[in-house]
Amino acid sequence: MAGFKAWNIAARLKRRGGALAQMARAMRLFVPMCGDVLKGRYRPVPWSAIGWMALAVIYLVSPLDLIPDVLLLVGVLDDVVIVGWLLTRVDAALADYRRWKGIDMPVRRPPPR
């Protein structure tokens, strides 16, 4: 039974919940941040967040990958992992923007076992 629990997808997602929350928050905040920057309401411009997001989009649409998408599951999986990591970098770069908006909520971490 213990070996089966290690492969339990729900348990794995629960352990990775912090990273998934960071990715979702980055995607939710990036477009409003760009709007605030373009309207001049938010300064300084978070160039690192813009750069990380540009890298994520470029990697996602680029035909050049670490593992070609022709290898169906593995090829798509590398896209998910790399773009997910880049989105966590976007989220970290948006920390000052979240504080400015008054929505700086810490990402929930699962309690240690």
Rank of each mutant, 00 (worst) to 15 (best):
G18R: 08
Y97A: 10
P112C: 05
V80G: 11
V57A: 01
V61M: 12
V61F: 13
K5S: 13
D69T: 14
I67R: 14
L66H: 04
L60S: 11
V45L: 04
G35W: 03
M27Q: 10
L87T: 00
D69M: 12
A19R: 13
L38Q: 13
D79P: 06
L64T: 08
A10W: 04
V70S: 13
T88A: 11
L64R: 07
R89P: 06
K14N: 08
D78P: 00
G84K: 09
G51Q: 00
C34F: 08
D36Y: 00
N8C: 13
D104V: 01
L66R: 03
A6V: 15
L94C: 03
R15N: 14
A2P: 11
R43K: 04
V90N: 04
R99Q: 15
A11G: 13
A56R: 00
R43N: 05
A10T: 11
W100S: 03
M33Q: 02
G75P: 02
I9T: 12
G51S: 13
A93C: 11
A10I: 12
L29G: 06
K39F: 03
I9A: 09
Y59V: 06
P44R: 01
P44T: 05
S48G: 07
M105Y: 05
L60E: 11
I58P: 08
N8H: 11
G18C: 12
L20Q: 05
N8Q: 12
N8R: 06
K14V: 12
M27L: 15
A26E: 02
L64P: 09
V61L: 15
